[in-house]
Write a protein that binds this DNA or RNA. Structure first.
Length: 642
DNA sequence: TTAGGGTTAG
């Protein structure tokens, strides 16, 4: 069962999703309140707060729970909040009208008092009266408050009146409207337990509200309930949910949503398919995307250029060029022409893979094909030329850009500045950025960040911080990248206390912590390493491959080689998936700490786990062996040439 | 309504 599904079932039902609760006979004792409060989705603290702070209200509506005698208290004050009106002599009909009126005007206290007075009529008040109270209160624009929630919880707890389907619908709707999804799930669980089923409209509205509130986990919970009930969410909701899940890196969940609907024979079309294809291809799951692609194609549904382009992107990203070219041909065989985006993807990955000469041929090729390159395509090529410091080619391309009627944008400035910085030409970069600004070219926060980097690399981090604090005044909001650049600057200047002060001035992310962790690990500072790890845990920051690589370095440097090996094993087994850099850092640190033989074993282990050592890996090992005039001969190498 | 670009940490 899917994780989202199982997590929902645990709180919504307390049993498996397929076992629908039988309708509960009227008058049967309700589920104990404390047991309900222990259920995961209804926070203990909320319940405790309600029980403590709002007892007065609930004791009025359910006096038996609080040993409250209604007959002796027709006129009295509640919590010193003023006198309630005397209505003891009114008829039941009058009381009903009065109660609705008080509820509608938002005076819950008076409404509850009137409700209590209805007890003077035999068999009254009824569940319909309760529903009328809630309905009148909410219909007139009053928000579903904690007070009303407590009243409803008490009502469900009490054995006096059994809530009906309308009661549950009213409560869930009201809670959803104010975004209290946690309590809504709790009440939904009670609804199921009482034998009532939510309507499609209720769940659909709830799902939409969750999506609009960016509550992805709650959205998946509601989606699971809808699936369980055989309700198909609306197409806009499904599309929006899939897009949001994909954008937030929850690709598995997005795929789950899509495939669950597909399994039920429900396919909305390519506008639902494409976000999934792109998310899969961007996250390195191109073959899963390929399977999905052909599954849909087999049904005879037309696929658009965007779908093909996603697969081209995935294959290029994974370095599977033959598959990428084959797919471009496949697209053309299907009567579709590569789009501007398809070409951009090809140009991008040609550049990334060091094939800039081929990339340079694309602008004219695209013109020939009737698909003129835009500034974005030119910027990609400019970036690669800038990284290679090919000044002449940059000038030629800039001339071409201008001749085509384009004007350099902030991206153009960033790729050129970034290239200068990467080439170590900090002074040139500063000059270029200042000229750009004075000439009025567009700049943005990324350009600003490059300038901050320039200052930091010149040991002018304090000045960079001063500039950052004034960025807002210049119309730019500093991003986390801006703060992380400054953090890195302070670390490089060994100004730890300044780094910590800054860390408390924004919402740090995993990069922020990795920045300080990296510095502490190089310094072998156990105290700071532990402090950072502790803060990461407390702030719910998940370790990524950078974190792990830092820790591998640290463990080797403080002589904890066996712990380092354990960490490496754990990474291979459970992730985050190590990269060639992780591998090489381990080899380098092990060799430097006198564990050359262990490094050889690690080399073999990684090679046998499907990691291809690169030139740097061989270089590290060869140098380590050369120090004792020995030759590095890995088993895999010997086997290959034996 | 869907898709492509720059700046931070190992």
């Amino acid at each position: 069962m899917n994780a989202h599904c199982s997590s929902f079932c645990s709180y919504a039902h307390g049993s498996s999703p397929s076992s629908r609760a039988p309708r509960q006979p009227s008058g049967l004792k309700r589920q104990p309140f404390l047991l309900l409060a222990a259920m995961p989705l209804c926070s203990d603290s909320v319940i405790r707060f309600c029980r403590r702070g709002l007892r007065t209200y609930s004791s009025v509506i359910f006096p038996k729970l609080a040993s409250f005698s209604s007959s002796s208290c027709a006129l009295q004050t509640i919590d010193g909040g003023g006198e309630v009106e005397s209505t003891v002599s009114s008829s039941y009909d009058d009381l009903q009208r009065g109660m609705r009126g008080h509820a509608a005007s938002g005076d819950l206290r008076q409404a509850l008092w009137t409700w209590n007075l209805m007890r003077n009529s035999p068999g009254k008040p009824t569940v319909n009266d309760f529903n009328a109270l809630v309905h009148s209160y909410l219909k007139c624009g009053n928000r579903f408050s904690d007070v009303l929630l407590e009243v409803c919880l008490r009502m469900m707890e009490s054995s006096e009146i059994a809530p009906n389907a309308i009661t549950f619908n009213l409560i869930v709707n009201g809670l959803v409207a104010v975004g209290n999804f946690r309590a809504a799930f709790f009440v939904l669980g009670q609804m199921f337990t009482s034998g009532f089923l939510p309507s499609f409209t209720l769940l659909s509205r709830w799902l939409k509200k969750c999506i609009e509130s960016n509550s992805l986990t709650d959205s998946l919970g509601v989606f699971d309930v809808m699936l369980m009930m055989d309700y198909v969410p609306t197409e806009p909701s499904v599309n929006m949910l899939i897009c949001m899940l994909s954008k937030n890196g929850m690709v598995k969940a997005a795929y789950y949503v899509f495939s669950s609907l597909l399994a039920k024979g429900c396919f909305f079309g390519v506008y639902t398919l494409n976000p999934i294809l792109w998310a899969l291809c961007k996250s390195g799951k191109t073959y899963t995307a390929l399977q999905l692609f052909y599954l849909i194609k087999k049904t005879g549904l037309g696929l658009y250029v965007c779908s093909y382009t996603a697969l081209v992107y995935g294959f290029c990203k994974e370095g599977l060029w033959e598959d990428a070219w084959w797919f471009v041909d496949e697209m053309q065989d299907s009567g579709l022409k590569p789009s501007l985006v398809t070409y951009t993807v090809l140009v991008k990955f040609l550049c990334v893979n060091g094939r800039v000469e081929e990339a340079l041929r694309y602008p004219s090729l695209m013109e020939t094909e009737g698909c003129s390159p835009d500034l974005l395509v030119y910027n990609i090529i400019l970036q690669e030329l800038s990284h290679l410091d090919r000044v002449f080619d940059i000038t030629v391309l800039l001339d071409m850009i201008v001749s085509k009627g384009y004007s350099p944008d902030a991206y153009t400035v960033a790729v050129l500045g970034g290239g200068l910085l990467k080439a170590g030409r900090v002074g040139d970069c500063v000059g270029f950025l200042l000229d750009t600004i004075s000439e009025g070219y567009p700049i943005d926060v990324a350009v600003y960040n490059i300038y901050l980097q320039c200052l930091c690399s010149q040991s002018r981090t304090t000045e960079a911080l001063y500039l950052l604090e004034r960025m807002t005044g210049a119309g730019f909001n500093p991003s986390n990248v801006s703060y992380n650049i400054i953090l890195n600057g302070f670390c490089r200047e060994n100004k730890f206390s300044k780094a910590v002060t800054l860390l408390n001035q924004f919402l740090p992310d995993v990069v922020s912590f990795n920045t300080i962790l990296s510095w502490a690990c190089r310094q072998r500072s156990s105290e700071i390493v532990e402090w950072i790890l502790c803060r990461m845990q407390n702030e719910g920051i998940t370790h990524d491959v950078f974190t792990s690589t830092c820790l591998i370095r640290y463990l080797c440097r403080v002589g904890k080689v066996s712990e380092c090996l354990k960490l490496l094993d754990n990474l291979l087994l459970n992730g985050p998936k190590p990269t060639i850099v992780t591998f090489n850092v381990a080899l380098h640190e092990l060799c430097n700490s006198g564990s050359r033989e262990i490094a050889s074993q690690v080399f073999e282990k990684f090679s046998n786990s499907g990691f291809l050592p690169n030139a740097a890996s061989y270089d590290i090992m060869s140098r380590a062996y050369a120090r004792t005039h020995a030759t590095f001969a890995p088993v895999s190498f010997v086997k290959g040439y034996g």
